[in-house]
Write a protein that binds this DNA or RNA. Sequence first.
DNA 1: CTCAGTGCAAAGGATTTGCATGCCG
DNA 2: CGGCATGCAAATCCTTTGCACTGAG
Lengths: 146, 146
Amino acid sequence: MTDDLHATVATRLVADEQRYTANRRAVVEVLEAAERPLTIAEILDRRSLAQSSVYRNLVVLEQAAVVHRVTSTDEFARYELAEDLTEHHHHHLICATCGKVEDFTVAPALERTLENAMARVAAETGFQPERHRLDLVGTCATCGQD
Amino acid sequence: MTDDLHATVATRLVADEQRYTANRRAVVEVLEAAERPLTIAEILDRRSLAQSSVYRNLVVLEQAAVVHRVTSTDEFARYELAEDLTEHHHHHLICATCGKVEDFTVAPALERTLENAMARVAAETGFQPERHRLDLVGTCATCGQD
DNA sequence: CTCAGTGCAAAGGATTTGCATGCCG
DNA sequence: CGGCATGCAAATCCTTTGCACTGAG
């Protein structure tokens, strides 16, 4: 599974005329090991890398559709592996207090309903939807212990 | 309707021990006139106000539940009037290319399904959902004209 | 009079970029 | 060898803050 992942990443980078360097692999490994989207600071905590390289490589990886950028309520950008590189489609629980982002999934029936709604919107407006973002914003278990 | 709006805003601010000043009213009027969430720069374009006052007043207005902060794919924060001050609950079409945010609504049945899903997640995890965020990310009509 | 709100300018902090060096192809 | 990736440090840019001033109650 892991080998598959790196092979796929390499393919996507090559398709984008980019190399799969050691630093880029390091970033992918960190995100693979994480169970939730990580901030740049969290990536740097887990691997000793130059900050600017992480920023630059995340741009490259996002452009090659390897990683996905997630926005929370705070000012930090967070990154996760693209959904089609991991097991499945998921959504986010966003803590309005601390900004932490956790993953969750919903029933397939609801997903299908969402897809239908997206298609309808595309038909009614000039907007071309690529993906949907269903997040729950609230208070995480940790911040809720007051 | 407009008078109602300002009366409600005033009430919320008073409840938060804040005044409804001319600058704050100006911000509310700008957001009321807009048909989509606006960036700080867009607010400043529409009214001649000190940048710092806009930032500070948006903090106050958000805390009083008068305005709501929306995150897009770009680095600019966007603001809109709280949903319960305007006609109805809506979602956002977010352009991945230019960051622009437009409003849209979905069928009530889908909304109810979403509410149910939220309640289930709350029961299964320690997370306390306050609201949901269903956005469609894609390409807007303008950026799609290539 | 008092104190919150305002405006200007300077500071903060995440992110980006310039440039010299290193390394893959 | 040539060119992209890297790392350090400096620059950017959205946002926040310090401070003196104004105005509402």
